[in-house]
Every structure is written in C-alpha cells, then in structure tokens.
Write a protein that binds this DNA or RNA. Structure first.
Length: 643
RNA sequence: GCCGGCGUGGCGCAGCCCGGUAGCGCAACCGACUUGUAAUCGGUAGGUCGUCGGUUCGAAUCCGACCGCCGGCUCCA
C-alpha cells in the first residue's frame, strides 16, 4: 500500500490502485505529486508526497483554464461537426483554442458557443486520461490533421517520446483531445467562465501556415473572481490612452498624416515640455552632454552602421536626391558616433555621454501599430556613452541608478529586469558577444538587481538589459533598455589616444530610459488614468467666476498664478457653476477655484481638488505657495488645504 | 504584411439585413437667465454617409478595389 505524505505532515496509506484524489478533500481539482501536477485520478505506485491543488491557486487556475479550453473546443465541435482543433493552452488570466471551424464564425456566435459550453458543464462529464500508443492516438484522432502533425513531431523528438512510445489522450463524453493534462475531474468543476474575443492566428504562429480561428476566454475559481477580473478589464479600458488622449485634448493621429504618426495638441505639448525639460536637466546633472542631429542621412552611414544589412525592413525606403540616396533615421546611434569622430579623442575625454531627444522613424508592421504605444515616428531619450573598457561596468551601473531614480519619480513599482542575449542574426563576433553579455551580468550583480534571462531577444548589435515597470493597476510595461555594444566602435573605426600614446578602441553603451516619449506618455496616461501629478498637468488651476462681474477678478488671480509659474485657466463660458465644475472635473484639472462675491469680499477662496474635496477660507498666496511646493517636489499626491 | 470586425457632422452613436436623395445625444454658435461646487432653458448652424469604381431608374444601404481604425497573429498536445 503506498504511503502518502500530506502537507500537514500526516502519512495516510492509500489502498492499492486507489487514486490520490480520495484523500485530498472536496476543494481539490488536481494534485501535486512529488512536485508534478497530476489529475486527482492519478494512482501512485509507491510512496509519494501529495498536495491538494485548489482552484484558487495559480496551479489550480491553470488547470481550470486548460480544462475550459477543452470544453470550448468540444462545444465548437458539437455546434459545427467537422471542426479541426489545433492547440488550446491556458494563458495569463484565461485560455484560448485555435480551431479550423467548418463554418464562418464571428463574435456574434460567441454567446451560442458559451451556451453550448454551459451545457457541457451542466452534464458534468468526467475527464478521462488514457495512455495509448501513437498509432492508436492517430486512429482515435482521425481527420484531426493538426493533432496528427503534433503526434508525428513528438515522435521525432529525442529522448522523452520515441517512436512507438505512448502519448496521452483526454476524453470527456465522446470528445477526445491529445493532451498532457492534468485536468479537473469533471466539466462540472468549471464554474465561472466567459468567452472574450475571437480573432485569427496562424498554425504554429507562422504566416506561411493556414490561418485558424482563435477564440479567447477567461475562467476563474468563483463568479466573484470572474467579475473582479472583468472589472479590471473595464478599469484598463477607462485608462486607455487613446481615449484619454482625445478626451483631454492631448494628441491625435489624423488620417492624412499616415499610420503610426501623431500630432501633439497644445495641452499635450505643454505636458511634453515638462517631461522633456526635466529629463534633459537630469541628464545634464548626471554628466551627460546634449547634442542635436538631423533626421536623415546618406545611405553610406547606414551601410557602415550595419542598419541597411540587418534593419532595412524596419526603415522607410530611401529618398533619391541630387547628392545620392538618403534614409530617415530609425536610430540615433550613427549620428552620435559621427560627433565622437569629429575630433581625435583622448582617454581623458572618456566617458563621453552624448544625449539627445532624437526623433526616429521606423516602418513597423502595419498591424502592430497601437496608439502611442507602437508608432512609426517618435522621439527617444537616447544616449550613447562612449568609454574605455575598464569604465564600462561603472557606466552601466550609473545608468541603472538613473533609471531607478527616474521611475521612482513617477511612482512605478519595483522593476522586473530582463537580460536579453544575442539573437541568431548579429553583426558581432562570438567573442565580442560573450564579452558584452558578461559585462552586463557583472553590472547587474554589482548593482544587486535580480534579473531573468531572455534568450535571443537582444538586438543585432548586442545584448541588452530591459526594465519593466509595474503601473497603478498592476500591468508591466517595458520602458528602459540598456545595450552594450562592441560592434559599432569597430565598424566606425572609433578610437581614442590612451595614456600610453597608443590608439585604442572605445566601447559604446546605448540606453533609453523612458524609451520613446510617445510611448512613455501613453504609459503615464494609463498609469495615472489621465489625472497627472501637478507638475505634468497641462492645466493646473481653473478659475470659475460665479457671474460675469467676477471675471475681472479671476483675471487678476490667473495673472498672479501665471507670474508664479502656474498654468491657470479661466472658464468664463455662459454656463452654470455646476456645469463648469463638471467640465473641469472631466478634464481632470487638479484644482478648481470658484470665485464669487463672498470670496472677493473675504479675500480668501475655496479650493476644490480632484477628489471633489472643498476647503474654504484659503488665502490666495497660500494656494500659490502650496502649488509651487507640490510642483517643485513633483508630488504624486494633491495638497490637502484643510491641513 | 496576414486574418477578422469596423469606418455616417468635432466626439459618441442610430439608420444598412428588406435600396427610394440622412437622424439622436454631446460639443460649437446665438439668445434669455447672472447663477456658489459634476449637466439652466430656448434657438441656429454643421454631414455629397472613408475613397474610387460597379450593379440599379435610383446606393449610406448591394458588389469590388484601395485607404484608415480596432482586435489577434509569442507563451509549444
């Protein structure tokens, strides 16, 4: 009789041939047996450690969602016999299944599919695991050519599953799928789910392969969890920068401009000025030099840099002119190299930190464009640090430090750091590649940053470290990138004269901390839900005259505010006070001051903040001082005038 | 780029399936009210229905091409 070890330390014995589920209680939907995720129906052959897996755990949700994916495919097969099913994994927050459906199915059909899924859940069909030979699996899944391909591929893999080996099938009712499992014991355990969207996806993600219909859904342990999740989605929708950008009159992308290109309106422009001035000042304070470079350059520059060889797909096509072909820049680095090379450099000049808010154009795939997050024209806070090899680690560590300082200012959570190693296609010699990666690792360890490795995600000229930051509603955004480059100095034959009076090759660090300002602005808008901290707010204080006779007084207040460096606005529309308050709130104006007879007489004012909290009797210079302080501190909280 | 959905005054939408020369709300403008913390009332103006072509006596509506927007195309049974 197998002897079990349960998490509570007890060691019950399990009758021979009995499944582990029997001892795990009613809440378990799966089990962890000696660390492996298993079905409740798993029958141990010897002594094992067993833990119950409940639906609320990460493991449990994964199992639940994977099972829901099966039910989805099963439902579609019931509705449209002849449907071929490909893959249906659990993903973050949900699941999907890729299907070749024997009919044209659109979003309108989702409720129908959902109803069919509910029927299957109501039937409470047991999930039955079977281990069968490959040939039997092929027979059982006759006509399922995607499954056949997977089974045939498995046969080709070394080790684990050789030819003739068994594969696992899961069956509920008469519907069979090739699957490793595990699954919930029966369909009745899939409680709270809903289908969310439908779209196309290629078989195995390759556009040369046939296109399948992908149906997405989400599943949770309880209805309350599902609803909370749907709420989070709504919250994300409310924060959508494309929507807020229009509502707050920040920017737009008129069709005449072209896809992925944006114009910034006055309100967006003043926001960007604040951001840009601050970033530039910060760089100057950290020993960077500001440079300015043009938007286009001759093709020879891009030949030397290697962009034309490796990056041409992402560049706008060349323009022919009387002096040859010119390309619009997709990166700033070659220009900064030219600045470096404008003189003979001494070791004493290094590190040289060249910084620019450089506008670049990339011909991104049409379908990948997305608001300001994925654009074809944008401005990077781009710097290139050119240094001696022995300065490299210190310089990278300094970049990490600046990165964290900048992101703390915006109130992001702790970063998730990735080290991306080189991709297959690179212009680097293997030896240089190894050195570059090693340097980044040393810097990460020196600064004490925990990181995970992402293989092959680096750029064509070097490996990189990326920082992802968590926003106010828990989403991660990749913002900062730091790249270590031994290739461009070589290609451009960059040199400096060393202490030994000999010529040496410098090393280059590419880094963008905010990334693209457009993209970063979008992230900030979503992070703050459009309610910017005062220092970034396009409009900082709005004066609302109660009647026409108060407009003049508002002008005086606004003038004083402006003279103190604030951005005021007077709403003298012929509307009710209530209406004007409402429109100010909708524009997320930080402070509203209603001005009427009472205030003018008293010489003090009532301040209303974004929360709608009103504080009466505040002297005007106190308002000015307080807002000045809030701006100077770049505070993330509004001033409480009540004390 | 590929697949699917969508494209109607500045914005959000109805009308399209079952062709017969466009409608609502907000915003804008004008007028009245002169107002005290999230929408005062009344009126006016504004669209050749993304573009081009086709079918038809007649097209926002049907068909085709193009342009644009949205979602997806990585997470390996």
């Amino acid at each position: 009789m197998p002897r079990l070890t349960l998490p509570d330390g007890t060691h019950p014995e399990l009758p021979e041939g009995e499944p582990v589920g029997g001892v795990l209680g009613p809440d378990a939907i799966a089990a962890r047996v000696d660390g492996e995720l298993r079905d409740l129906s798993f029958v141990p052959t010897g002594d094992v450690a067993v833990e119950p897996v409940g639906a609320v755990s990460d493991d449990g949700l994964h199992v639940l969602r994977h099972s829901a994916a099966h039910v989805l495919a099963q439902a579609v097969c019931r509705l449209w016999p002849g449907t071929r099913y490909a893959i249906g994994p659990a993903i973050d927050d949900g699941f999907y299944y890729d299907l070749a459906i024997a009919a044209h199915v659109s979003a309108d059909d989702l409720p129908r599919i959902e109803d069919e899924m509910r029927a299957i859940v109501a039937e409470d069909q047991p999930f039955i695991r079977e281990e069968v030979s490959r040939s039997e699996a092929l027979a059982r899944l006759a006509g399922q050519d995607f499954k056949r391909e997977i089974i045939e591929d498995l046969a080709g893999e070394e080790g684990e599953v050789g030819p003739g080996d068994t594969v696992t099938l899961y069956r509920n009712d008469h519907w069979v799928d090739l699957c490793l499992g595990p699954h919930v014991p029966s369909t009745g355990r899939i409680g709270a789910f809903t289908l969310t969207s439908i779209s196309g996806a290629y078989w195995r993600g390759d556009e040369k392969n046939p296109q399948l219909t992908r149906i997405y859904g989400t599943a949770w342990a309880t209805r309350a969890d599902l609803e909370a999740h749907l709420h989070r989605l709504e919250e994300a929708e409310r924060r959508d920068h494309r929507l807020l950008g229009r509502q707050l009159d920040l920017f737009s992308s008129p069709e005449e401009l072209g896809p992925g290109l944006w114009v910034w309106h006055p309100r967006g422009g003043v926001f960007r000025k604040q951001l840009e001035d601050w970033v530039r000042d910060l760089h100057l304070a950290r020993g960077y030099d500001l440079v300015v470079t043009p938007h286009i350059a001759r093709s020879v520059l891009w030949e030397t840099s290697g962009h034309l060889a490796k990056y041409a797909d992402n560049m706008y096509p060349p323009m022919q002119t009387d002096t040859g072909d010119y390309y619009v820049k997709p990166m700033n680095c070659p220009f900064h190299v030219l600045i470096y090379k404008s003189q003979v450099r001494s070791y004493r000049e290094l590190p040289m930190r060249l910084s620019e808010l450089g506008t670049i154009y990339r011909h991104e795939r049409l379908g990948s464009l997305h608001g300001l997050l994925r654009i074809r024209g944008g401005t990077q806070d781009d710097s290139h640090i050119i240094c001696r090899p022995d300065q490299l680690v210190d310089e990278i560590v300094a970049v990490f430090d600046l990165t964290l300082e900048i992101h703390r200012t915006f109130g992001f959570g702790d970063p998730v750091v990735n080290l991306s190693t080189l991709p297959g296609q690179t212009i680097l010699e293997p030896e240089m590649a190894a050195r570059a990666t090693e340097t980044l690792v040393t810097a990460l360890e020196r600064y004490g940053l925990p990181y995970t490795e992402a293989e092959g995600e680096g750029t064509f000229y070097g490996p990189k470290v990326d920082f992802h930051f968590r926003d106010a509603i828990g989403r991660l955004w990749q913002l900062t990138t730091v790249q270590c480059d031994f290739a461009l100095p070589e290609r451009f034959d960059m040199e400096y004269t060393g202490e030994d009076n000999k010529r040496h090759r410098p090393v280059m660090i590419h880094r963008a901390i905010l990334g693209t300002l457009e993209r970063f602005s979008a992230v900030l808008i979503e992070h703050y839900g459009g309610a910017f901290p005062l220092w970034l707010s396009p409009e900082q204080i709005r004066f609302v005259p109660v009647a026409d006779r108060h407009v003049e007084h508002c002008r005086t207040l606004a003038d004083t505010s402006r003279a103190s460096g604030l951005r005021p606005f007077i709403d003298d529309a012929k509307e009710s006070v209530g209406k004007k308050i409402r429109s100010a709130q909708l524009m997320k104006v930080p402070y509203i001051v209603v001005v009427g007879d009472r205030d003018i007489e008293a010489g003090t004012y009532t301040v209303r903040d974004r929360e709608g909290i009103e504080t009466p009797g505040v002297p005007f210079d106190q308002i000015i001082t307080a807002l000045g302080d809030e701006i100077a501190e770049r505070s993330l909280e509004q001033t409480r005038f009540g004390g």
